[in-house]
Design a protein around this nucleic acid. Structure first.
Length: 389
DNA sequence: CCAACCGGGGTCTGCCATAGTA
DNA sequence: TACTATGGCAGACCCCGGTTGG
């Protein structure tokens, strides 16, 4: 049996659903099966290691002792060794210290095992270091539980660096650019990696954003920084290269003037800046081709995408599927581009609503289609009335 | 009362490459 | 020359409801 990579259960649902997918996995029987089989595997591995020199009083090799302890704790040793083999060749590691520390902060045994399986280097940190780092995080977060939740989600962001001074300086720096504690809390929750970036990297991004701001003729860079970071808490974990490319794409595709661009990247377009290389371009080309083939003009396409930038987040397959599903019901392309938010709804919502509406005698090709994207509550109320009337 | 308009909310990791370090 | 610290990458929606204008 092959052990799946932890990052391997990516789904078409996207990054925002990652957490939910992972926790389902953690508590599924499949997880336990893997735990079980890795223990069997571990036994055979340790037999093969029989010749390793003995360093402790019981005569058991230290490395074996560590591995067996971890295994007992429920750590997926195979996965851990594959990820960071170096960790297991070191001497003087106390996995018990980490365990005790995290237990004292309210983490469950399962969470601890999962953390070590995914980021083994965690066990090389000393209690003193952990304690200091935790306290620094606690200056931002109000409870230990919140931190435990972040660690469960993203162990790497807490454990990857052992430079607590850098962390401290980052916190000072972020306050100094005008962010509030609330904003830092948001950053730490959403993009914890921000805080293990080097101070220099964070400074680079902030300076880069300030330059953009000034080059676009904004008079108050500090205000701009506050706005853009609050609006887009992930921006500090992107590369300036990526942000640059996306801004360039916006500029070249939509002929925006400076002010329009400023408003866009601090507002609706904030998330757009995170898009990975060429993704925007790829999707835009697909959207354009599809709409042109359905009889839209270039201007209409541009106007449509700009009025509803979220459409760029839709992969080609999904975008096409949604359009197909609407067109099949004799909804015209002009209805769609005039009411772009109908594309907000999932394909299954679109399908079920279309079916219900048709059954209720609602003529989608002549009536308004915005109700396809209304909130459930509003939609249900409307449907009820249609069925009565 | 109704629906169009509009903004907001949740939420980003795990892996790899490569300098740097002891 | 192992091992560590750090940068950077791909990946790819859906739903809710306040306000406003009729």
């Amino acid at each position: 049996m092959s052990i799946p990579k932890v990052g391997g259960y990516w789904t078409s649902l996207g990054p925002r659903y990652f957490l939910c997918m992972r926790s389902n996995f953690l508590f599924s029987s499949r997880w336990w099966m893997i735990q079980f089989s890795s223990q069997i595997l571990f036994k055979s591995v340790s037999l093969r290691l029989f010749g390793v020199k003995c360093d402790n009083e019981d005569g058991e090799p230290l490395k074996d002792k560590l591995l067996s302890n971890l295994s007992t704790m429920g750590v997926d040793v195979d996965m851990a060794k594959k990820r960071q083999p170096g960790v297991f060749n070191r001497m003087g590691i106390s996995e018990q210290d980490l365990k005790m520390f995290l237990l004292s902060k309210g983490a469950s045994k399962e969470v601890i095992a999962s953390i070590i399986s995914r980021y083994p280097r965690a066990i090389t940190r000393t209690t003193e270091h952990l304690s200091k780092r935790w306290d620094l995080w606690r200056t931002i977060m109000t409870s230990d539980l919140e931190i435990v939740n972040i660690l469960e989600r993203s162990p790497e962001s807490f454990f990857r660096s052992n430079n607590n001074l850098n962390l401290e300086n980052n916190i000072k720096f972020l306050y100094s650019v005008g962010l509030t504690r609330k904003c830092l809390c948001r950053l730490l929750t959403s993009a914890p990696r921000t805080f293990s970036n080097s101070l220099d990297l964070n400074k680079q991004m902030v300076e880069f954003l300030q330059e953009i701001c000034l080059s676009l003729g904004h008079s108050d860079p500090k205000d701009f920084i506050r706005k853009i970071i609050f609006k887009n808490p992930f921006i500090l974990i992107q590369s300036t290269k990526r942000i640059k490319a996306n801004i360039k794409f916006l500029q070249s595709t939509f002929n925006l003037n400076n002010e329009e661009l400023l408003v866009l990247i601090c507002g609706r377009g904030a998330e757009f800046l995170e898009l990975s290389s060429d993704y925007a371009k790829r999707n835009y080309i697909n959207i354009k081709e599809r709409l042109l083939s359905l009889g839209c003009t270039e201007e209409e396409v541009q106007k449509f995408v700009l009025s509803y930038l979220d459409v760029i987040f839709l992969g080609e397959k999904k975008f096409n599927a949604k359009i197909d599903c609407l067109i099949e019901e004799k909804i015209s392309i002009s209805q769609i581009i005039e009411n772009p938010r109908v594309l907000d709804s999932s394909i299954s919502t679109l399908k079920s609503r279309i079916k219900e509406l048709v059954n209720a005698g609602y003529n989608l090709s002549t009536s308004n289609i915005t109700l396809l994207s209304w909130s459930q509550k509003r939609y249900k109320a409307k449907l009820k009335k249609l069925n009565i009337g």
